[in-house]
Design a protein around this nucleic acid. Structure first.
Lengths: 110, 110
DNA sequence: CAATAATATATCGCTATGCCACATATCGGT
DNA sequence: ACCGATATGTGGCATAGCGATATATTATTG
């Protein structure tokens, strides 16, 4: 119903936003989304990790393994230059999308 | 990533909202969504019609054939009592969803 | 110290969804 | 006669979501 990019947009938008300021690893991203949304949003690992691989393959994020004594290895993802552009575009798409739904359903947002 | 209801929510929400005030037929719903969203949202018929059948099967909308001379038969859908409840719930879910995304991505809405 | 929870990444396989492409039918305009 | 708009409908493919399951390490708690 919306163009392909927009539809996948909300999931991708969340991840790209979270790695914007600092590199984060998958598990961190998953728990952050759940906590910050107060439980409204939840990522299943079987969706989250494959999505991270897709984003990396597209060159929007770049991962690297970090191993520290006393903790399991983690793969930290940072936003690439290309990813920054995509994030900006997706933010606009999201705004447009929400406005469109508002116009049709009559829902107002705080 | 969101619960099943929420995810299908946006598509269902649009349809339920549009048949809230008056019965509408499928083609009308499709063109209305496209026009009111100024092209941002578009329903493919191969998604729209099956979705209408699903909503009717669940008892949220009720369709009836209307045949008038000088036009092709149309199936008009009206919102059922059950559908009204679902619509109210989905409006709340949608608001929650948008707020959650806003909190995580830092996007403000007009 | 043994069991359990939390952390962290990973994948199989089922189901549902989206949509391209195509099909059918009627009406109005050119 | 042809084409575009209106109107409904479907087969089949590609993809996404996710429950279930697996593996490995560290922290906690009885």
């Amino acid at each position: 119903m919306l163009d392909r990019e927009l539809k996948k947009g909300s999931a991708e938008l969340l991840i790209l936003s979270l790695v914007e300021d600092q590199p984060r690893h998958g598990y961190d991203i998953g728990t952050l989304i759940e906590r910050r949304s107060k439980g409204t949003l939840r990522f299943n690992v079987a969706s989250l990790y494959p999505l991270l691989y897709r984003l990396e393959k597209r060159g929007w994020i770049q991962g690297r393994w970090v191993e520290k004594a006393g903790q399991r290895r983690r793969r930290y993802y940072r936003l690439t230059a290309e990813g920054k552009k995509v994030l900006a575009a997706q933010r606009n798409s999201w705004r447009e999308f929400v406005e469109a739904i508002s116009r049709i359903t009559g829902i107002e947002h705080a």
